[in-house]
Nucleic acid binder design. Structure first.
Lengths: 344, 344
DNA sequence: CGCTATCATGATAGCGCTACCATTCCTTTT
DNA sequence: AAAAGGAATGGTAGCGCTATCATGATAGCG
C-alpha cells in the first residue's frame, strides 16, 4: 500500500487564537497586506489600513509576536542584565531604561546575575536565544566566554554604570574620579585619618574603583589610605555595624568615606544613637545621592550620580542605533556632583 | 514560459547562526533527536545525548528560543506587571519572583503600568503575544477590557500584593485588616486625635484599603478619622512636607498613621529637625517594615509585610501549576506583623 | 513462537508570521 | 507615444524549531 493516503491530516493548532490570516480574510486583503497595515502603516492604502484595523478590533486579534520575531529575526525585546535588585541604584537605571524603551514599543527582558559573571554568561546566552534587539548590561567586566559571545553578536550592546572603552556603546561615569573627588573634599576639610569602607569590593568592583581614586589622592598627600572591607552587601545595618568595627581597628579615625549612601546613612544614624557627634567626633561621607541622605541630620555629604538619567540616555542611544541612525559617540559621560552636607 | 525555473532560490538566512540541524548533523543524528537530547534528555539514549551535547559545545550552538516557542507554543517567559519601580515594595516582590523563577529556567518579562490600568491592558496584550507561560500582576483591579482578556486566557494568572478572590491564583495580605491592626494599636496607646496620611489613594488603592480598616476601628470607638491625601507619590520628601500640612489642618493631632514607611520616616526625620518630640508631641506609624524604620530614633512603629516572601511563594505556586500539579489552594495569605517601635 | 508492550529514532508537516520577488496599474518623463 | 518610475498588492517560501505519527528494534509473556 502506498503511503500517500493521509487519512488523518495532521492537526496542530490547539488554541482558538485569532490569526493574521483570519484578520486579512475579514478585511478582504491578503495576509501580507494585513501584516503591512499593522507594521508599516505607510506602505498600504488608507482604505486597506482602515479595513484591517477594523477587523483587528472586531475579531480581538492579538499579534503573535513569537511568530513575527521568527520570521523577521527582530524581536523588539531588550535584554537588561543587572547584578542586583536589592541595590536601588540598578533599579533606578532600569526605571530610566524602562520608561524610554516602553514608549518606543520595546519590552524589557530582565536578568539578575547576583554579581556572578558566570551567571551573566548564562543569561546572555539565553537572551540571545530570544533574538533580542539589543542588550544592556551593568559594567564593563565579563568573563572570557561572555566576552567572546558579545564580541560576535551583531546587535547593539550597551554597557552602563561605569565609563570606559567597552564592547560597543557605553553610558556611565568615572568612578575613579568620583573617589578622587570625595577624597579631595575630605582632605580640604582638614581630615587626615580617613578610612574607606566598602562591602564586597570584588563583587561591587566599582566601589573598588572609587577606592583607587580615593587612595591616589591620599597617597599624593603622603597619607595612608586604610580600607575596611565588609563581608555583607551594603545596607543600613551593615553601615551601622561597621562603625564600631572601624573605630576599633582605627581609633584615630576622623572621617569615614563609605562606598555608598546606605552604609553611610546606617553609620550616621548609628553614631547618633551612640551619642557620637557628626562630624565633630567622626565625619561621614557616602556615594550615590540617595534621598535618605538629605533627610538625616546632619545632611550626608555624598556624590550624586544621575541614575535614572543614565538609564534614559542609554535607552535613547540604543533607540538611535536601532532605528539605523549613525552613532558618532560611543561613550557618554553622565558625570557626578559632589553634594556637601553637614556630615563632613 | 513556465514558472518552475527558480533560477535564484530564495535565500533568507541572514546570520551565521548555528542551527539545531547542524548540531544534529555533527552528532550524526536527526534534528528531532537533537531536539529531544536537549529538551527531554530522558527520552534519548545516553549515547545520542552525549554526542549531541558534545556537538553543541563544539559548534557553540545557542538554541533559538523564538523558533522553539513558536513550534511548541510554550515560551518559559513569565510576564510580570507592576505599577511602579520607584516604590521598593514592588521591586522586592520582583526579586522574590526572579530568584525562584530563574532557578527553574523561566525568564521575566517586565512591565510597568505607572498605576494606569489602561497601560496594564496594553502590556497584557503585548505579553500575550509572547505566548507567556504565566502572568503575574500586582493587584486585583483591572479595567473591563483587561478583565475580559485575562478571563479568556488559558495560562496561569497570579495576582499578588492583596488578598482576595481574583482571576486565578492569588498571594497577598489583607490590607483592610492591616489598617485595622495599626489603628487598634494607636487606640490602645491612648491616642484619640489620629490622622491618616496617604499619597494618591486612587492609584495606591491598597493604601486606601488600609484607611478603610483604620476608619472602621476609629468609628467603632466613636472617633473621627480624618484623612489627608497628598498629591505626590510617597517619598521621604512628601512625608516631611506633609507634617507641616497635617499640623496646620489638624492642630490637635496626637498621632499620624502614614500609608507607608517612606512617608512616616520622612515625617519622623522632619519632626526631629523641627525639634518636635516623637512620640511626645506627635506619634508616627508607618507601613511596610522597611529597614530604614529600624534605624531612625525612635524606631518606627510599622507593619511588616513579607514582600520577598510574597514573590517567592507566588513563584513557587506558579511553578507547581506550570508543572501540571494540582493546585488545591488558590488564595495564599502571607500575613503581616505589627512591629512596635518607640515612635508611638 | 507469535503476540503485544516499550524504547529509540526518524520523516513529515506545520507553528504564524514576514522577506523577497513578481505583478498590476498608474503617473511622470523625454 | 513609448519608456521609465513608483505605489499598492499578492504569491511563495521560508524563519528554526517541535508535535505528531510511523517505523524498526528489542524485550517480555504465556
Amino acid at each position: 500500500m502506498s503511503k500517500d493516503s493521509p487519512a488523518t491530516v495532521k492537526q496542530r493548532r490547539n488554541s482558538d487564537q485569532v490569526t493574521l490570516s483570519q484578520v486579512a480574510q475579514a478585511a478582504g486583503v491578503s495576509p501580507i497586506t494585513a501584516s503591512r497595515a499593522l507594521n508599516h502603516p505607510d506602505k498600504v492604502s488608507e482604505n486597506a489600513r482602515r479595513n484591517v484595523l477594523e477587523a483587528v478590533e472586531r475579531l480581538g486579534y492579538v499579534p503573535n509576536l513569537v511568530a513575527g520575531s521568527l520570521a523577521s529575526s527582530r524581536s523588539r525585546l531588550i535584554a537588561v542584565i543587572v547584578p542586583s535588585l536589592i541595590n536601588t541604584v540598578f533599579v533606578e537605571v532600569i526605571k530610566g531604561l524602562q520608561e524610554t524603551l516602553e514608549a518606543e514599543g520595546y519590552q524589557i527582558l530582565l536578568g539578575n546575575t547576583d554579581y556572578d559573571l558566570d551567571r551573566e554568561y548564562q543569561l546572555v546566552r539565553t537572551f540571545f536565544g530570544w533574538s533580542c534587539s539589543a542588550l544592556v548590561t551593568a559594567g564593563l567586566r565579563h568573563n572570557q566566554a561572555c566576552h567572546t559571545l558579545l564580541a560576535n553578536w551583531d546587535h547593539p550592546i550597551m554597557e552602563v554604570m561605569e565609563l570606559g572603552k567597552g564592547m560597543d556603546l557605553n553610558v556611565g561615569l568615572d568612578h575613579v574620579a568620583a573617589g578622587r573627588c570625595m577624597a579631595s573634599h575630605l582632605i580640604d576639610r582638614g581630615y587626615r585619618h580617613i578610612v574607606y569602607v566598602g562591602a564586597r569590593l570584588t563583587q561591587d568592583y566599582r566601589a573598588g574603583m572609587r577606592y583607587e581614586g580615593h587612595r591616589e589622592v591620599l597617597q599624593a598627600q603622603g597619607i595612608e589610605a586604610p580600607l575596611v572591607e565588609l563581608d555583607t552587601l551594603g545596607s543600613l545595618q551593615a553601615g551601622a555595624e561597621s562603625l564600631t568595627q572601624v573605630l576599633a581597628q582605627h581609633p584615630h579615625t576622623q572621617a569615614i568615606h563609605f562606598a555608598n549612601d546606605d552604609l553611610a546613612a546606617g553609620a550616621l544614624l548609628a553614631a547618633q544613637r551612640q551619642g557620637l557627634s557628626v562630624p565633630g567626633d567622626i565625619a561621614i561621607a557616602g556615594f550615590n545621592g540617595l534621598p535618605l541622605g538629605q533627610h538625616v541630620t546632619p545632611q550626608l555629604t555624598t556624590i550624586l550620580s544621575p541614575r535614572e538619567e543614565m538609564g534614559r540616555l542609554a535607552a535613547k542611544e540604543l533607540i538611535r542605533r536601532l532605528s539605523g541612525k549613525n552613532v558618532y559617540r560611543r561613550q557618554h559621560d553622565v558625570g557626578f556632583t559632589l553634594q556637601t552636607g553637614g556630615s563632613t
